[in-house]
Design a protein around this nucleic acid. Structure first.
Length: 423
RNA sequence: AGAGGAGUGGCAGAGUGGUCGAAUGCGGCGGUCUUGAAAACCGUUGUACCGCGAGGUACCGGGGGUUCGAAUCCCUCCUCCUCUGCCA
């Protein structure tokens, strides 16, 4: 969440930034926060000085009791019961103010980076790069949902039987292809300096708040009511939360992690005719890269991460483009996001396969993730993450783009992982 | 899952109602000594909020309560350990 001090110091920039997200009452919102913070301060000052008085009386009583002067002790007790009542009320008032303030801040999204274009929907995202040739397909080329049936490598009906729609079963070469991609992506991440982690795929409420899925996206996560736990929508949540309530030393930086997990998304309200096959699922596999950086390095890190994703896409020979997300399409917690889309030739559609974001201090402030600089001062760090990459749409594009009359060619870099070069 | 025990500063570990933000040891940092290092000795060493500052407040697993006063007593939740049971 945003820091009140920064809201005060950079109010104009914040208002301009939030307006790019189409928050028309940005100024009003920020003013409310500032006002709440002021009453927080004054209430706390009052409470603190009352507490100081109460503490000092309590000490006096202690001293008097020791000297056996019980009568005198009893006399000054009167004031303390008065203070006690007063402080109870002040304490409740302060808690109320703090809760309001936190709620307000929870519901204000991150301020976009200056380079983020204004815009309302994904139509307004700006294409900044396009790489690779769109393949020409043979006559009778099929979309991946038909190809998987023909070759019997992914079975939606079986998934529906055992779980429900959006939970496919990968079989034979399909299962092997998916595992190959996971291993390939992880190996490439490790080569690029990311250390591998295998986190839990179920997280508690505190973790959900730490990275900002809660309260913003509560309805989008599967919830285990009995234990109050959530199935992760992305490995970003457990991996970034490894650093919740952590103060790092300068020499621990940068932090770079890669992890493979299944991801679970309820996708409430986002189903329709345009979403077929592997294009949108409730459960899918993804390799995620996460970085924790010093503020002054974070945008360079963002470039590194984008370069890594580009490397993966071109090594798989997939045509891709990079989009700079506009204010309206930017994720709640992000300051700047680049989306990577591959062209899936038989559908004739661009499919998002990666999203690389810099959250600046927005998550770190919730996480209380800091480092100590040379002056032993605590500095909030910047967090970043990116998909490297989400599997099903990559598989869809590989199947569609590499098909010929008799089968599908597997990209060369995967051969040693799949053990076969054709389906 | 049942029974019992325990959660204190970076770590270890004292503290069972007042002067305890907290002994002591280790580690860390600074210094003295030394050609250098080690040892020894001296000093220092948590986080957050408020305040120009002096300073004040809060935090001894989380939350609540008792009391003039809580690390210490009570309730509750969480976590860990031991034994029994179950199990990949």
């Amino acid at each position: 969440m945003l820091q009140v001090n920064n809201i005060i110091a950079e109010k104009d920039r914040y208002i301009t930034g939030l307006k790019k997200r189409n928050i028309s009452n940005a100024e009003e919102l920020l003013n409310e926060v500032i006002q709440l913070d002021e009453s927080r301060k004054s209430t706390q000052q009052e409470l603190d000085s009352n507490l100081a008085e109460a503490n000092s009386i309590a000490k006096q009583i202690g001293a008097l009791m020791k000297e056996g002067k019980k009568d005198e002790a009893e006399k000054i007790k009167a004031r303390t019961s008065e203070l006690k009542q007063l402080n109870k009320e002040l304490g409740e008032k302060l808690n109320g103010i703090q809760d309001d303030l936190t709620q307000k801040l929870y519901n204000i999204p991150n301020v976009p980076n200056e380079s983020v274009p204004a815009g309302n929907t994904d139509e307004d995202n700006v294409e900044i790069k396009k790489v690779g040739e769109v393949p020409t397909l043979n006559d009778g080329a099929m979309a991946h949902w038909d190809l998987i049936k023909k070759h019997d490598i992914i079975d939606f009906d079986l998934g529906i039987k055992i779980t429900g729609a959006g939970f496919p079963v990968y079989k034979g070469k399909g299962a092997r292809l998916q595992r190959a991609l996971v291993n390939y992506f992880l190996d490439e991440a490790v080569k690029a300096g990311y250390s591998e982690v295998q986190p839990p795929i179920v997280v508690n409420e505190a973790s959900g708040y730490g990275t900002g899925q809660l309260p913003d996206k509560e309805g989008q996560m599967y919830h285990i009511g009995e234990e109050n736990l959530f199935l992760i929508p992305t490995a970003e949540v457990p991996i970034t939360n490894l650093y919740r309530d952590v103060i790092l030393n300068e020499q621990d930086l940068p932090v770079k992690h890669a992890g493979f997990t299944p991801c679970f998304r309820r996708e409430a309200g986002s189903w329709g005719a345009h979403v077929r096959g592997l294009n949108r699922l409730h459960q899918f596999d993804k390799v995620e890269i996460v970085q924790v950086r010093k503020p002054e390095e974070s945008y360079q890190a963002l470039e590194e991460m984008c370069a890594h994703v580009e490397h993966l896409l071109s090594s798989l020979n997939l045509p891709y483009r990079i989009l700079r997300l506009c204010g309206g399409d930017l994720g709640f917690t992000s300051a700047l996001t680049f989306d990577f889309e591959v062209y899936s030739a038989a559908q004739g559609k661009w499919l998002e396969v990666s999203s690389v974001s810099n959250f600046e201090t927005y998550q770190a402030n919730r996480l209380k993730l800091r480092y100590k600089d040379e002056n032993k001062k605590s500095i909030l760090l910047h967090t970043l993450n990116g998909s490297a990459m989400a599997l099903p749409r990559i598989i869809a594009a590989i199947l569609e783009n590499n098909q010929d009359e008799s089968g599908i060619n597997i990209p060369e870099v995967l051969h040693s992982y799949t053990g076969f070069n054709r389906i």
